[in-house]
Design a binder for these strands. Structure first.
Ligand code: FES
Ligand code: FES
Lengths: 148, 148
DNA sequence: TCTCATGTAACTTTCAATGTTACGAACTAG
DNA sequence: CTAGTTCGTAACATTGAAAGTTACATGAGA
């Protein structure tokens, strides 16, 4: 999640397509890992990929129309919580009671979290990024690009 | 978390102390694993342990006075979310913007979740367990003990 | 004193996430 | 058409954290 958002913000800073190779260097990882995680976003229509010369990854939608919730679903809606239930279909009454109680709390928290995700757009993230950049530039009076 | 609650409910069903060995068999795991996880609860005053003959683990507090929040803190307040931030102290402005946005949502959800945990007592869990047991007994008309 | 049980360190096993290699398919420049 | 580039994906390798295991010391009863 965190990594994907980072990648998307990078893509937003460049006008042309960006290759998996370039993105991988930025994220200090492997091009295949980039492709793997982008696959879901491509299927969701969030990004576009082109092969051959001048190819690479492009944002297919406007930053303002993309929420964290879109991204979360785009990467396959992975489990949100680290403390899940031990067994999926327990016959045991103890397990059932424990699961029922935990699920009640977890489901409530999950609903709030996803709703919260739905209110945050990538445009907001990008604005925050540029604000930080401006503040940093003002503070250090150095060049006009960030270091990496 | 789920496993610890299961253990505690088992202890609530027995009057005397229960050994790590017995609990481990119930949970299909190793006695040392039981002791490891109980260590925090003991330090928190939730359970008591006695060595030697007739020793083992005992609940030190009333079920009604124990909430899921107590248990959560007792086991060391582990990370709740599976989708955390990649780096703790990022110098990079992109990471900072991403972390800020995610943390805002996650902190909100975490607060709700912990508050929710605070409202659920182990007594409630135990009651739910016995209710399920009664329902099951009524449905099957079999003996008066659950199977495992 | 002998047995039982916890406390804990050290080691091993397991398993999922991540990283890597390899190669095929699609695309473009020339 | 050919060569170079890039994605798509399967297969394999590496890594790291969680769980399991072994071993032994400590404390408490019988
Ligand atoms: S396994 Fe513990 S009561 Fe069912
Ligand atoms: S590492 Fe991507 S902008 Fe800093």
């Amino acid at each position: 999640m965190s990594g994907v958002l980072h990648v998307l913000l990078h893509m937003a800073e460049v006008d042309g397509p960006v290759t998996s190779e370039t993105l991988a260097r930025m994220m200090q990882t492997n091009p295949v890992v980039i492709r793997r995680v982008m696959a879901g976003l491509k299927a969701a229509g969030t990004v576009r990929s082109d092969k051959g010369h001048g190819g690479g990854w492009t944002l297919a939608r406007d930053l303002a129309s993309l929420t964290l919730l879109d991204i979360y679903h785009g990467i396959g809606s992975p489990p949100l919580f680290a403390i899940g239930n031990r067994r999926e279909a327990p016959e045991c009454a103890v397990e059932q009671a424990v699961n029922e109680a935990l699920d009640a709390s977890l489901d409530e928290a999950e609903a709030l979290l996803l709703a919260s995700f739905g209110t945050v757009t990538l445009a907001t993230l990008s604005q925050n990024f540029h604000r930080r950049l401006a503040e940093r530039r003002a503070a250090t009076s150095s060049g006009d690009r960030h270091d990496h």
